[in-house]
Every structure is written in structure tokens, then in C-alpha cells.
Design a protein around this nucleic acid. Structure first.
Lengths: 164, 164
DNA sequence: TGCAACCAGTTGCAAATTGCAATCAGTTAA
DNA sequence: TTAACTGATTGCAATTTGCAACTGGTTGCA
């Protein structure tokens, strides 16, 4: 892995790290789906990532300090992947992409509702959600209590799915 | 080109369109560098894209209605590429990526200054810049007059470069 | 009129990356 | 003891990328 960067442009450097078809989806699943294990990321992925690609991307994200890995005490082989502060700070990027996709692409209803809420909530909601991620992934207690943004998004998603 | 989408998730759909190492750089150059011709995008690119990749990506972006192409009246072979409204609306995505890259990656000083200003300016500045892009690319006169965000970014960039 | 420079791409080919299925070796619960 | 589960790895075909050369046409200038 040679670090031959193409330029010092911040957008380019960001793309060099997460500018592929899978990395941001993995991060999305860690954020919104709370997937923390290899198997969870592999099998519960909406898009069906294959195991070699997942292994490779997790390695890249570890190298880039976007996620960390620690052993799961309940199972000697299991690893728990967590987002770092740097990884959590990718939320605004994902949120903007979700908002753009929601507006211009043929998004499915059950997956679009999350994007709509997140978009309507704006930076304030993103910030609140990031605090929740800091609690889940970094063990930093969040300030605000009560129902979380994560729960609200999940509930909205399910209410669409269960509406027959 | 079969449209086998992996899922209806807005983030995934967005990545399917611009989730590669070059598309967003082309859009960046159109926005911040005002590159409108094939040659300009090819030779003035900081990262050195090759002509076949550029041709392919422009085709993809045309298909996705992110850019349009029209003939340049001054030269029969020249084409002018313009951003569509949809393309202009990618600015917040780029701005967030720039902000993240600026904060966490080894950005060069002359290219970082733009990211810093854009980040400090926030959504308000982005919106103003998008209005300028609408004027340049869509021919829609902007409301606010006076020095543009584009000029300010350019000036800041040059002031760093020319500081010996 | 001729010619060099410029224009937007295209082509051919090697190298790297991706996607898929099978496999692996250690771990755990029954 | 054994079947299922864990995080991966391997082999291989297909696709994508990157580079350099090239194409067919246009333009400006002498």
C-alpha cells in the first residue's frame, strides 16, 4: 500500500479514502443499522457485499482511522468494529448524499423515508445523531436524553414497511 | 449499460452515479475552476485524468442528467459542458467532503484555503455560490450582486500561492 | 493554399480491481 | 462429538483502469 496521492485537494484526498462503491455503504450500515460485526455487515447488507471486498474495505477503513476493531469478549473470534470520531464526522457527507439521492433518484419508499427525515431535520438533527453515535461507538455519554434520532429513524422506516 | 441497481437506498443510488474516483473531481473542476471544455478538464486537472476515462465519465454524467453538452459557436468541434440544476445541487456534498478532508487529511495549503473558506461560510455561502453557478451554467441571473463567492475563493487561493 | 496547432475523443493493451463461489481454521452450543 | 457459526482467505473469470498512441476533423496564420 503505497501512498501515491494524486493531489493535496481535500475533495480528492477524501475520495482516495472513501471514494468507492462500498466504503460509505459500510459506514452507513454501521451508523444507521448499528452493524458492528463482520457477519452482520456481510449478511444484513441491503446490497450484498462479498466477503473479500468487505474484509478489504474494513482493512482500509482501519488504516484510515475511520473505524477501530476490538475483540468481542463474548466470542474469541468475533470482532467489534466501532466508528472513530473521524468516522462519525462523515455523517454530514452521507446525509447530503442521501438528500441528493432522495431528491433526484428513484429511491424506494421504505428507504427514502429515512433520507427525508434526516434532510428535514437538518444539521441540528445530524449533530444530535452524531452525539448518539459517540455514545454507542466511543462510550461518550450524550447530553440530551429521551428518544433518540436513531430510534425515530428506525421507527419511521418500519411504519412504512408495516403499512399494508 | 444495464441499470442493475443494487438497492433503492438513496445513498447507494447516489454512489452508483458519482461513487467513483473521478466523477466528483470533474464536477469540482466545473464548479470551482470553471472548466467547460474537454481539453480544459483534461489538461488543467490537478490529478491528471486520462482522456478515455474523462470521455467515459462525461458520458455517464450526461446520461445521469448531471451535466449537459452543447456546441460551442466559436469552434465547430468544441463542446461546452454545463452543470444542470441537479449537478449544481451536488455542491453541498462536495462542500462536506472538502470540510471533512480539510479536517482530517494532509491537505496542501493552497488547496485547503478554499475548503476552509467554504466550510466557514456554511450553507449560506454554499447557497450563494449555487446561485452563481445557476447564472454561469443555466443563464439564470442571480439575485445578489457584487463580488462573487467564486471570485473570493479564487482570490484567497492565489494569495496563498503568491505569498513568497 | 498549405501547414502547424488545436479539438474532442477512440483504440489497443497491460495491469489492477471486482465479484463470485468455494474453502479454511478456530470457536461455541447442543 | 458434531453441527453451526465466527472472521476471514483463495482461486479464477470478468470488468475496470491507466497509459500512450492515434484518428478525423477544425482553425489560425503565413
Amino acid at each position: 500500500m503505497t501512498d501515491d496521492q494524486r493531489s493535496g485537494c481535500p475533495i480528492n484526498l477524501t475520495l482516495e479514502v472513501v471514494g468507492d462503491k462500498w466504503s460509505l455503504l459500510i459506514i452507513r450500515d454501521m451508523m444507521f443499522g448499528n452493524r458492528r460485526h463482520f457477519r452482520e455487515l456481510l449478511t444484513k447488507s441491503e446490497e450484498g457485499i462479498s466477503s473479500n471486498i468487505l474484509a478489504d474495505r474494513l482493512k482500509t477503513l482501519l488504516d484510515a482511522d475511520i473505524i477501530t476493531r476490538e475483540d468481542d469478549p463474548s466470542h474469541k473470534q468475533k470482532g467489534i468494529y466501532s466508528l472513530t470520531e473521524q468516522g462519525i464526522e462523515l455523517l454530514p457527507v452521507l446525509a447530503q448524499m442521501a438528500a441528493w439521492g432522495y431528491q433526484y433518484l428513484p429511491v424506494s419508499e421504505e428507504l427514502g423515508i429515512r433520507a427525508r427525515l434526516l434532510s428535514e431535520g437538518g444539521p441540528k438533527m445530524w449533530s444530535e445523531f452524531m452525539d448518539e453515535l459517540r455514545e454507542t461507538h466511543l462510550g461518550i455519554a450524550r447530553r440530551k436524553k429521551g428518544p433518540t434520532v436513531g430510534e425515530r429513524l428506525q421507527a419511521a422506516c418500519e411504519s412504512v414497511v408495516n403499512r399494508t
